[in-house]
Design a protein around this nucleic acid. Structure first.
Lengths: 338, 338
DNA sequence: TTGAAAGCGCTAACAC
DNA sequence: GTGTTAGCGCTTTCAA
């Protein structure tokens, strides 16, 4: 490993000067600058980021806490977040909590404020208290995809208007003429997807209709759960002509279930999801869904986090992304005439 | 931020002692130990990982270079790698090169050997030379999924016998009775998937058959490319009864194309892939594929990397994972009688 | 068993 | 412009 002072020695200057030329801090003569640069080149010197971090009192990394990077939505977010971080000279450490609060806490304890300057929280199943504690210890925390713009959380956050997304999905189904709709909610009753469902109910209300409780299933946010719930619901309510799913994963499961029952999407039953993950456009039929602005949410999250780190913003702040938009694909159509 | 010496002061000892207590380095009296622990608790002290790294001369992080974490296979690998890294007390930094060698080089230059102790290379499109250069600078490098066990690379690596995988896929198709098979190779002719195709050709040869060159398409490793190539190939060779794809993504594309042509998988045409990514089991019909041992490849990669870092192993070493295995699902069946 | 002190590689005042 | 110096927070000999 080549160090600053080795470079300095070769260039016949002191390490402070080398540091100055490397950080482009003016006040360096043109010839010494050239001499230093040459020495750097010759020795193949690379700054030691850890040492620099310690001296500067700040880490070059940010952490992203996520329940599991293998969940199909997160990689897309992570990619965008990493890009945004890079654009600001930061590296991204990925922390999979596996939905286990203890794992998340361990991460927070170890890296927040030491290895990484701040942390992005994406659905990591961590109690607010733990998050506030790490914030108090000096490491800013940003909630990446808050679901309720009307109810700002106690921590800085980027919010997506998921209620609007739910309403858009509901409206689309209703406008197509659907009256018998089943709803798949990918969380507990008052869980994370509650707002999306509320939005769907808003759309029903707007249309002067009422959604019957029994036609709603609260399930895990997975393809398999969407599959099972759809099977069950279709058996109980064969008259359904459409399925509203609070997320793309259960929607995809619903499509599979419908296909396996020998029915056709969208001819017999329409399906709509929310998010617009990659698979949505690749499934057959391609899934109609309400696209959430993933990339800009990631960028906004990184920017807010950096602002907090630089103390140029004070918590709590909530910023709202652009409104989700309908993406019409092939899984929705008017209901069959009877 | 609480520092070691603050804890030391509170406990009435010196920071060296606190350090000893924390690192469980015996030689500390029981009462002082307790006193120190209490002080740690009281102040909510957390070791500063960056400072520790600098003092120890080693970073607590490992880097994973990948072309794009959003590519459906990588997140699964990344998850397993992160778990393995955590099990050894390391954190994982994700580096998306975006398939751009310059980006990869920039990462290597910046973090290898400074911010991170070593780097895992997963299909990041980086020239060997750059990798060898970073290794020379002192940061071990491990190639995570080398495709040719018979031709060890010049760097430490974990190899998967993809030729065997290709042979397994080919054999499966042939055993089902297929004779008119189209091949989709997800890389350039002598590119990364060449071994898989060779394996497929091995299977043909074993069966005393010869695969006709014109029935092979070299394409990008994507769903879209698989779709287009299948469309084209089926138009040119309507007699095909099966598609061998060197990867699941093109295989999924092939299934979509077949469906869009109004044909049925597997009744009219069988499709097989390689890897067994998550989507494979979720597609309709579920994709028959040859599963690669992702998790163990990730673990082996991490372990090899750590061994190199601890100099308990010297490069180059190549280790081979368990052999890929056939996963029969619904996309393959015997060909129709004519 | 505990303390003193040096140093990891770099940055940032402050002098010269 | 360039050098001197004092740390950043921790680990680790080496002495006591």
């Amino acid at each position: 490993m080549t160090t600053l002072s080795e470079v300095a020695r070769l260039a016949g200057v002191t390490s402070a000067t080398v540091s100055n030329v490397l950080r482009q801090r003016g006040k360096v003569g043109e010839q010494t600058r050239l001499r230093v640069l040459e020495a750097v080149e010759q020795l193949g010197y690379r700054p030691h980021l850890t040492a620099r971090a310690l001296a500067e009192g700040r880490a070059p990394t940010l952490a992203l806490m996520v329940s599991s990077i293998a969940n199909p939505f997160y990689p897309e977010f992570a990619l965008a977040a990493e890009r945004a971080a890079r654009a600001h000279g930061r590296f991204l450490i990925v922390c999979n909590t596996n939905d286990d609060p203890a794992t998340g806490r361990a991460y927070l304890d170890q890296i927040a404020g030491t290895l990484s300057d701040g942390v992005l929280i994406m659905n990591a199943n961590l109690p607010m208290d733990d998050l506030k504690k790490t914030e108090k210890r000096g490491a800013p925390v940003v909630l990446c995809m808050w679901e309720k713009p009307d109810a700002p959380p106690e921590l800085p956050s980027i919010a997506v208007d998921f209620r609007a997304a739910g309403a858009i999905a509901g409206r689309h189904l209703i406008e197509l003429g659907h009256r018998d709709i089943g709803a798949l909610v990918g969380s507990k009753k008052n869980g994370i997807h509650a707002e999306r469902y509320r939005g769907y109910l808003d759309a029903c209300a707007e249309a002067g209709r009422k959604h019957a409780q029994e036609r709603t299933r609260y399930i895990p946010d997975t393809v398999a759960a969407g599959y099972d719930a759809t099977m069950a619901m279709l058996k109980e309510f064969p008259q359904l002509t459409a399925i509203f799913a609070s997320n793309d994963l259960p929607a995809l499961g619903a499509m599979n279930a419908i296909a396996d029952m020998g029915l056709n999407v969208p001819r017999d039953i329409s399906v709509i999801g929310i998010t617009d993950i990659q698979w949505a456009r690749l499934s057959r039929p391609a899934l109609t869904t309400v696209a959430v602005p993933t990339d800009s949410a990631a960028e906004m999250s990184i920017e807010l986090l950096l602002a907090l780190i630089n103390r140029s913003s004070k918590s709590p702040v909530m910023r709202v992304t652009a409104t989700p938009e309908l993406v019409r694909r092939a899984s929705t159509a008017p209901p069959k005439k009877r």
